[in-house]
Amino acid sequence: MDISLSKEIDAPAAFVFQAVTDFERFEKVAIARGVKVHRRAAPSDAVAGPVWDVQFLFHGKALDLTLAVTDLMAPDHLVMSVLAKSFKGRAMCQLSPRETEKTQMTLSFMFEGQTLSGRLFLKALEVTKATMEQKIAKRMADFARETESAYRATV
């Protein structure tokens, strides 16, 4: 299953990249939403390699994931691997500078089943793909608004 969405943000790529790699902020947001998050690697946000164990309920089922930063190149992109018991995947955030002080942010998610139950789980998600894309688009818009406000406060 693949999902890809884009959003233009009214801030320079370097500033947006800082916001995208503010891992502590994302950890706090996830915990506030009831997600259990445990960072296994040293708390250095500037290098590839942090790893998290994440547990949450998804459609009433407990889901345990391991997320790891596999590639980090400022201010261009961030790639994370996603590993679960029955599927694996990759999440990528690509930042492309646009006109003066604007950045195009593209989020891409790619998942593949490792077991029969994983393939069935991902097939079931295909049915809700449009709803998931709407939710991700809303979160991207919220992130863009917050990042733009933070950037304007520094100018």
Rank of each mutant, 00 (worst) to 15 (best):
Y151E: 14
A130M: 14
K36P: 02
R152K: 10
E101F: 02
E27Q: 06
P12G: 08
A124T: 15
A130F: 04
L67H: 01
T100A: 14
K102I: 04
I136G: 03
R40L: 14
V37P: 00
S117A: 09
K123C: 03
V47K: 04
F56H: 07
L67E: 01
K102H: 13
L107H: 10
V82W: 10
A141H: 07
A74P: 05
E112R: 11
T66C: 11
S44E: 07
G113Q: 07
A74W: 09
V79Y: 06
A48T: 08
S108R: 09
G49V: 06
V54I: 02
T66L: 02
R145N: 13
L63P: 12
F109E: 05
M1P: 05
P43E: 13
D45P: 13
K129M: 02
K85C: 15
V16W: 01
S44A: 11
A48D: 07
M140I: 01
S117E: 06
F111L: 10
W52Q: 00
T106W: 15
S81Y: 10
T21P: 00
V47N: 15
A141G: 11
K7V: 15
H38K: 07
M73I: 11
S117C: 12
F56S: 14
V35N: 00
V47W: 06
D71R: 09
A11Y: 09
L63V: 13
L120C: 04
T103E: 09
A48W: 11
T70N: 12
K7R: 05
S6R: 04
D76E: 12
G113P: 01
K102G: 03
A130P: 08
G89C: 02
R145C: 11
H38R: 02
F87E: 03
T21Y: 07
D71E: 14
R90C: 08
S117I: 04
A137S: 14
M1R: 05
A74R: 11
A14V: 13
G89H: 01
